[in-house]
Simulated assay, not measured.
Amino acid sequence: MDQPVLPQQFVRLLNDLFRITADRLTPSTTFEDLGLDSLALMELVVSAEQECGLVLPERAMDLTPGTRLDEAARVLSAAVPSQQGADTPSALEAS
């Protein structure tokens, strides 16, 4: 069975912000595995908000270094359609 794929926009955001190559990003990787601390996660949330043009819910602020990338992508992606409308695809979903 194939491993789930992270949304391309999420992968690009991590690469743009932290210069982390896609081959290091798997759904089960944690931010801590990538050497990212809570300050880096706040930078990620702010960048995602700016890129998507929205304010993420409080749940997005609960990301910790121990959070898995698939969990973080799910939290961030879930926030986008709820603010843009159900018919609009999430900016953080795979293209």
Rank of each mutant, 00 (worst) to 15 (best):
D23G: 11
A48F: 07
D37T: 04
T67A: 08
F18V: 03
D70T: 03
S82L: 08
L44Y: 05
M42D: 05
M1F: 06
D62F: 12
Q3S: 02
P7A: 00
A40I: 01
G85S: 02
G35Y: 00
T29S: 14
R74F: 15
E51P: 02
A73T: 00
M42N: 07
V75Q: 07
S77G: 14
P4E: 01
P7D: 00
D23Y: 07
T64D: 15
E43M: 06
Q83H: 09
D37S: 05
D16Q: 04
G66N: 15
E93R: 15
R12C: 04
A40F: 11
S28P: 01
D16K: 04
R68W: 09
L6D: 00
L39W: 02
L76W: 13
A86M: 06
S90T: 06
R68A: 11
P89N: 11
E71I: 13
L13V: 02
V75F: 14
D87C: 05
V75S: 07
D70S: 07
V80L: 14
G53E: 08
G53D: 10
L76F: 15
L14G: 03
A72H: 07
V80S: 11
L39Y: 03
A94S: 12
V55A: 09
A78V: 06
P57A: 13
D2N: 04
V55P: 03
S77L: 11
A72Y: 11
V45K: 13
E93V: 05
D23W: 08
P27T: 00
L41S: 03
C52I: 10
E71V: 12
S90L: 09
A86D: 12
I20N: 06
Q9L: 03
A40D: 15
M1P: 03
T67R: 07
L34N: 04
E49Q: 15
L92T: 07
D62T: 14
Q50R: 12
G53V: 04
P57F: 08
E49M: 09
L69F: 05
P7V: 01
L76D: 13
L76A: 06
V45R: 15
P89K: 05
P7R: 00
S38R: 12
P65K: 10
V46F: 08
D70M: 06
L54E: 03
A40Q: 13
S38E: 13
D62I: 10
L36N: 02
L41E: 07
L44C: 06
E32Q: 11
V11P: 01
R24P: 00
T88H: 13
L14A: 02
V46C: 06
N15G: 13
Q84A: 10
P89T: 04
P4S: 00
P27K: 01
L69W: 08
G85R: 08
G35E: 05
Q8I: 03
F31V: 09
L14R: 00
L69S: 01
A48L: 13
V55N: 10
Q3M: 02
P57S: 13
L13S: 02
A73E: 08
R74D: 15
T64F: 13
E51F: 02
L92G: 05
L54G: 00
Q8F: 06
P81S: 03
F31P: 01
S90A: 09
